[in-house]
């Protein structure tokens, strides 16, 4: 019944080549014992579920380890990148900052500075001519007191501009 319907359908669709072959196409021959072997293989695979799950877990674990390594490497790289702004700061052009602004900053934050370093920097800027020469050779206590009493005016003569 259905075969007649199919042939009529092919006639209606003007498909004479398919119409002529319908029902005559040979089947593929299965190899001897194929279906028994197929049942064996399918049963083996279907009942081997725990092994499959374990293998899948191992695959998942490998991926997890790989992802963790990538994350750690990423964080390490990012932390190295964070030093870049400091490097950029070091390359800042100090000459472009007006002296008045620097003086204002120092006077506002004077407590933050190491005064010894500040004095040393001021001496370098002002030049060695300002500083009186220190007594050469062995120095006695008396000579040192005299030096400090007589020659400490140079510190008072320093202008704040000389500090920079």
């Amino acid at each position: 019944m259905e075969e007649n319907d199919i042939k009529k359908e092919l006639d209606a669709q003007e498909a004479p080549l398919l119409r002529a072959q319908q029902g005559k196409v040979p089947k593929w021959e299965l190899p001897s014992g194929y279906l028994d072997q197929l049942a064996d293989r399918a049963l083996d695979q279907a009942t081997a579920k725990p092994v499959t799950t374990y293998r899948r877990l191992r695959v998942v674990a490998r991926w997890a380890v790989a992802a963790a390594v990538i994350l750690v490497a990423g964080f390490w790289w990012m932390s190295n990148q964070s030093f870049e702004p400091t490097a950029q700061l070091a390359e800042l052009d100090w000459n472009s900052i007006p002296t008045e602004d620097l003086q204002q900053y120092v006077s506002d934050n004077i407590e933050e500075f190491d005064l010894d370093l500040l004095a040393e920097g001021a001496l370098e800027t002002a030049g060695s001519t300002v500083v009186p020469p220190a007594p050469a050779g062995d120095v006695s206590i008396e000579a040192l007191e005299e030096f400090l009493q007589d020659d400490d005016e140079w510190l008072d003569d320093l202008e704040s501009e000389d500090w920079f």
Binding site: W28, L38, A39, Q45
Partner: peptide, 29 residues
């Protein structure tokens, strides 16, 4: 099995591929 083999082979065309697909089918069944 035979009818399913014919049906699958018309779609995937080679015996090796048909064998794989039919085995997977039977495992699911």
């Amino acid at each position: 099995g035979d009818r399913l083999y014919q049906h699958i082979r018309r779609m995937v065309h080679t015996h090796e591929d048909t064998d794989d697909v039919l085995q997977n089918t039977m495992v699911k069944v």
